[in-house]
Design a protein around this nucleic acid. Structure first.
Lengths: 160, 160
DNA sequence: TAATTCCCGACTGTTTTAGTCAGGATTGTT
DNA sequence: AACAATCCTGACTAAAACAGTCGGGAATTA
């Protein structure tokens, strides 16, 4: 599972959708404005999200996008997987490591880590994230000081 | 955090070093042959690893590289950090999210995930990994926790 | 019919990845 | 001292991914 800004954009956009998802669809232009993401880029991302069955597009005036499922049935892992389509972690990039006969030294490590990250992200649904006080507030209300222990470049995405 | 083949190469090479680390240094040519990684590319990676203080280079015939510390004092997180030095500082790529006033929607999510992954990888040392297959069981027990499961006092980061 | 919106494919500039290459600098062996 | 092994450095490259841009459709509502 890859964790890039692309996936972050996707998650951010989906959260925006989830927040606005009262009844009427949300146009990309709105999301673009609110989240400061290029509209054309959003179109690319939503093409992927739609193909993954996570959103539905509605054309015409007052059209836009809607979540295809309930906010509590869409996990962050799914969103990221939809746009970061590179799933295979071929360890030896073409070498002998196919996990069968002669797994490379770190094979187990990466598969395990992958699972861990997936589980973590799969356990978080859009619905939880948008009603933060519980989820986000926890992550925001913390003791100061220990973040410095984590090298900046190890931090997923950006933190500031 | 970027989990790319680059970091995997680095970890694989370090594991090879750790396994061979009896007394004499290990030449890159050997690692290149055993792990099927281009020697020139290895030289680049080891330049970074050396600057990070993880290995020591010994020149001349029968030279090579040695771990700079005990195998049980080098974590996977450090190895990856040494080569994947990339920092992506802009949460909203130039937008308002600086973590201060108006953190973007997913700010807390990425911060927390970062910590989880870091903790996971920092908890695994080279010494453990080379002692497979016990390691796999161990690493599987080490779970990346869910947001809600993290004790508040352990949660760090910046706050809006 | 016209405006709005999704939809789609092709194109571009930059960065990263994964190397190659050419040449040092240092050191052990003969 | 000569030589070979090895690290060390910097510059270069091809391919891919990232982050868009652009132009033109197709569907739908007013």
């Amino acid at each position: 599972m890859k964790l890039t800004t692309k996936g972050r954009y996707a998650v951010t956009a989906m959260m925006d959708l989830a927040i606005q998802s009262s009844a009427s669809p949300v146009a990309l232009e709105e999301i673009s404005g609110r989240q400061d993401i290029s509209q054309s880029y959003l179109e690319q991302l939503f093409a992927l999200l739609r193909r993954a069955g996570l959103v539905e597009g509605i054309r015409g005036p007052h059209g836009g996008y809607q979540l295809a499922r309930d906010v509590n049935e869409i996990s962050i892992a799914e969103v990221i997987a939809a746009v970061d389509e590179n799933i295979d972690l071929t360890c030896g990039n073409g070498s002998s490591c196919s996990g069968d006969a002669d797994p490379c030294l770190t094979h187990g490590l990466w598969t395990t880590l992958s699972e861990q990250i997936y589980n973590f992200l799969h356990g978080i649904k859009l619905g939880e994230l948008i009603k933060s006080p519980e989820v986000l507030k926890i992550t925001q209300k913390r003791e100061v000081g220990r973040v410095a222990d984590i090298p900046v470049h190890l931090q997923v995405g950006n933190i500031n």
